[in-house]
Nucleic acid binder design. Structure first.
Lengths: 198, 198
DNA sequence: CTTATTTTGAACCGATCCATCCAAAACTAT
DNA sequence: ATAGTTTTGGATGGATCGGTTCAAAATAAG
């Protein structure tokens, strides 16, 4: 009954997400978003109502793409819990060394957004905090299981160790974005695993 | 022989630094800088030649204010090396819980700038990388001394452990900016110290 | 007081920002 | 073919951006 869209909304969202991911919210102009998505301004504003809303949806999409598989890995019953954590860290390291458009990591949209917006955008902060809770819960559960199995040190509570691993992941991302090479980043991850072993 | 300035250049620089620190480079307008410093546009552009240059000087000033005392602490011969690292982490944690203008940490200008600019501003990236080298060297020296004294685990090289501690510091900063409470952040620091002990 | 020099505030610049509007094009359903 | 609806590109708007200019104000030196 009406003219259909010639573009795929999810594809456009992915492209926008990548633009925000690479350059941050403020530094990504609506023009940049047009180029990245291949759409005109009208199409973008017609589909996503504003730059802010598009960013919100990009953030949700990113969380879906990253957190879901990470949580799945942490809950994988086929692997010993410590191995799950080790693989999570390995996956993070790998992620920092693939897709380097300018020879440098673009980091992690979550970390980038915490740094750029959490202090002055309560809505974004709430989204980020919720996602972090999910990741911390999955990490804490895996670490707790590892402790009960005796393969993870029990001298600290699982929740505290989860916080620790989560912080190291953020630290790895900052280090990679700061120019650290692969060996250096892998050493960080390995040392974090050391801290978990009895 | 001419009209003297009515403001103190260093004070103005400090105020500008704090504005960039709190809001980032892009989100701090020249108007914001006028308000923060209490100066007019002309005075700012007359003293510091551009927003970019003012930011560069702010970054240098921040490094001077933060890195110098941290390095001094790491080289303090009065303290056992592990204790120096522990105190460094404690100082970082304290820093994240003082001066919270909106009830949330403003983080660390270095980490904020790595995330916001390192990917697309080679000059800023170089400044940050140089500062990081200084911090890593001091950390590595202290950790190496601790290893020789037997109070820090020797299963990894000092340089690798320095990278690790540095990453945990960045992670602490991101966690605090993300809303983590003091107990959570202290647990991260304590776990990092665990990783260093034999 | 005069002169020389600098600071300072306000107006102003072109560029770019996010967002809106509108008419033409495109397509489906009848 | 026609009618009805949506998409689309381009023009446009008001605001703000970083940066410049300039004349008036201020002050030290002579």
């Amino acid at each position: 009954m009406a003219r259909p869209r010639t573009f795929d909304e999810d594809r456009a969202l992915d492209a926008a997400m990548r633009a925000f991911w690479a350059n941050g919210y403020e530094a990504t102009s609506t023009q940049d978003l047009c180029v990245a998505t291949g759409l005109g301004r009208s199409s973008i504003y017609n589909t996503f109502s504003s730059k802010r809303d598009l960013f919100r949806r990009s953030l949700d999409r990113y969380n879906e793409l990253m957190t879901v598989p990470q949580v799945a890995l942490l809950e994988d019953p086929e692997l010993p819990p410590l191995e799950r954590v080790r693989m999570l860290l390995a996956r993070v390291v790998d992620g920092e060394f693939e897709n380097r458009p300018q020879g440098r990591s673009i980091g992690c949209l979550t970390v980038n957004t915490v740094v750029e917006l959490a202090g002055r955008d309560p809505e974004a902060a709430a989204v980020l905090e919720r996602d972090q809770q999910v990741r911390l819960a999955a990490l804490g559960a895996a670490i707790g299981a590892g402790q009960r199995a005796g393969e993870i040190a029990g001298r600290r509570e699982a929740g505290e160790l989860a916080r620790f691993v989560n912080a190291v992941i953020a630290g790895i991302r900052v280090a990679a974005k700061g120019g650290a090479d692969r060996a250096a980043v892998e050493a960080i991850a390995a040392t974090a695993v050391d801290a978990l072993t009895p």
